[in-house]
């Protein structure tokens, strides 16, 4: 009987761990939102909180922009090159701009920017908070009656959410630019035509749904990184494990959440 029960027990334990993790994320996110009034609006400590938020926005967003631009420029170019032969077959090379704009605005821009930010910001947030756990800094904050959620998690979640949306805008534009360059040099589509086609094909809601996804992705990346960082045990090795887990789990979670969003947008016709 044991050999029959073991897989069920393992599956049950995994499911329980997953639920516990999702519950932990829910609690942390709720705590973060609840701490907004005291964290950013109350007179005491407000200046420090805004300074912290600004520092996180610079760290997460501003510094990752060149990498996001480079990656999305390449993605836009690759999409154009991959689609050109197929479209040529049907005499529809001109449609390249239409397809790229939809693909980048709705999907590739937010998702690829989020994956870059996971490696860039998610890993560093998890490592930073994990190190603070190991060096007793989190305990020290609690002993000073300073909530770690308000002081550490809030600026990181808010900063990443805001900057993820901004970075996605930059990523969208760079992706379209990548396609434009390829279209101009290899497919014989002039930049004017390309831009005209892009504006014709892409609607405001394509752009907005992409940005909504980007905001949610930013919240997901930072909340997971903070939670895994706060749960570090076992010293320096634990920090390494948390950092790796953050990158892997966040990328998986991003794809799953992206699928859910896409399915929802498809169902409602957005």
């Amino acid at each position: 009987m044991t050999f029959l029960l073991r897989p069920i027990t393992t599956l049950g334990a995994r499911a329980a761990a997953l639920l516990e993790f999702l519950g932990g994320m829910g609690y942390l996110l709720a705590d973060t939102f609840v701490s907004i009034p005291r964290g950013l609006l109350a007179r005491r400590g407000r200046r420090l909180a805004w300074r912290n938020l600004w520092a996180q926005m610079v760290r997460v967003g501003v510094r990752s922009i060149p990498i996001v631009m480079l990656v999305l420029f390449c993605i836009g170019s690759i999409l154009a090159l991959q689609m050109a032969p197929v479209l040529k077959e049907y005499g529809a090379t001109q449609q390249t701009a239409n397809i790229i704009s939809i693909a980048v605005f709705r999907e590739m821009g937010p998702l690829v920017s989020a994956i870059v930010l996971t490696g860039f910001a998610g890993a560093s947030i998890a490592a930073e908070i994990g190190t603070m756990v190991v060096s007793e800094e989190i305990e020290a904050l609690e002993a000073e009656a300073i909530s770690p959620v308000r002081f550490l998690v809030l600026p990181r979640v808010l900063g990443t959410t805001i900057m993820m949306t901004c970075v996605a805008v930059v990523g969208d534009l760079t992706g379209v630019l990548g396609g434009l360059v390829v279209a101009d040099f290899f497919l014989g589509i002039s930049p004017t035509q390309y831009v005209h086609r892009t504006f014709e094909a892409a609607q405001v809601h394509d752009f907005v749904t992409g940005l909504i996804k980007a905001g949610v992705f930013g919240m997901l990346i930072s909340t997971m990184a903070c939670l895994l960082g706060l749960r570090v045990t076992g010293g320096a090795q634990g920090v390494g494990v948390a950092t790796t887990r953050t990158v892997v789990l966040t990328i998986v979670a991003l794809i799953i959440v992206d699928l859910m969003f896409t399915a929802m947008f498809y169902y409602y016709g957005w």
Binding site: R44, G45, L48, T131, A140, E144, I146
Partner: peptide, 23 residues
């Protein structure tokens, strides 16, 4: 705390000032 538990991202003065700024 045993290690001092200073906040590594802040200077010594900012560490000491933190409880005063917060409370």
């Amino acid at each position: 705390f045993q290690s001092g538990a200073l906040f590594n991202s802040m200077s010594v003065a900012d560490n000491v000032a933190l409880p005063l700024r917060e409370h």
